[in-house]
């Protein structure tokens, strides 16, 4: 192949991409070779880490489920209805994505000290509780799930729903019988993205739910706790486990055909 200007351009762009991927490969490679598989297994078998793993799996699944329950109606509303101030609302829905994570945790902590917050806490105790971990994961994960569902509904034609309305559906029935079955791949993707986002959540959980061993400790908290006592091997083992989970989620999302 002759190296003309166009080919040279593609070559430079490919080198930039390869350089970035190589950097990530080196990062993960260095982490993976820091300790041996035997020591990873030993760390992952400890009761604290097994508890943190179990809690992470449960809270992430709950947070992602709640996020999806919110994302479907909000995503549908934002794509199918035109109304005044829609662009402002659209921007507001992205606020949790751009807020510093610690600020989200602080906002939660302060809100539950207000009168309304205390009334809610009387029904469901949240601050420094496992339910608080779910809420802290949910508030950020929901924004990502909403974004995914919005994209999904935008790609689906509204015409079949219009036809369903003429065939006797209410708007809710058109959503239930026509839009949702068509959006199921997007729903799986939104759930996976919310789940992965919840798995990596740390700042809001630390501030709002705390980092109490065998109580509110989830995997990112474990990494932080182990680092803070200088146990780098344990932090590495948990981090690699989280990388594995994240890769599995990425594969699941790609299998749905949706883009993250």
């Amino acid at each position: 192949m002759r190296l003309n200007r166009s080919n040279l351009c593609w070559l430079v762009l490919a080198l930039i991409t390869a350089g970035y991927l190589l950097f990530w490969a080196l990062l993960l490679g260095a982490t993976a070779t820091y300790s041996t598989p035997d020591s990873w297994l030993q760390v992952l078998r400890s009761p604290e880490i097994r508890h943190a793993t179990f809690l992470s799996l449960v809270t992430c699944s709950l947070a992602a489920s709640f996020a999806l329950l919110l994302a479907v109606p909000v995503g549908y509303l934002m794509t199918r209805l035109e109304f005044r101030g829609k662009s402002w609302l659209d921007a507001a829905l992205d606020i949790p994505i751009i807020l510093p994570p610690l600020v989200v945790g602080l906002c939660l902590l302060i809100f539950f000290q207000t009168k309304i917050g205390k009334v809610i806490e009387m029904a469901i105790p949240l601050t420094y509780q496992v339910s608080g971990v779910v809420l802290a994961q949910f508030v950020v994960a929901a924004a990502f799930a909403i974004r995914t569902m919005r994209g999904t509904f935008q790609h689906l034609s509204a015409r079949p729903e219009d036809v369903a309305l003429t065939l006797g559906c209410t708007r809710f029935q058109a959503l239930w019988h026509v839009a949702l079955p068509a959006a199921r791949r997007g729903m799986v993707a939104a759930f996976c993205i919310a789940w992965a986002r919840s798995l990596g959540e740390f700042g809001p959980i630390l501030v709002f739910a705390g980092a109490t061993r065998m109580k509110t400790e989830v995997l990112p908290t474990t990494v932080w706790l182990e680092l803070s006592v200088g146990n780098l091997e344990a932090a590495v083992a948990v981090s690699l486990f989280m990388v594995l989970l994240a890769v599995l989620v990425l594969v699941a999302v790609r299998a749905t055909g949706e883009k993250v």
Binding site: P160, V163, V178, P181
Partner: peptide, 14 residues
């Protein structure tokens, strides 16, 4: 009223 749009709009997945 029955309505058949230009793209026919069959329900995906049914």
């Amino acid at each position: 009223i029955g309505y058949v749009p230009q793209d026919l709009a069959l329900f995906p997945g049914l």
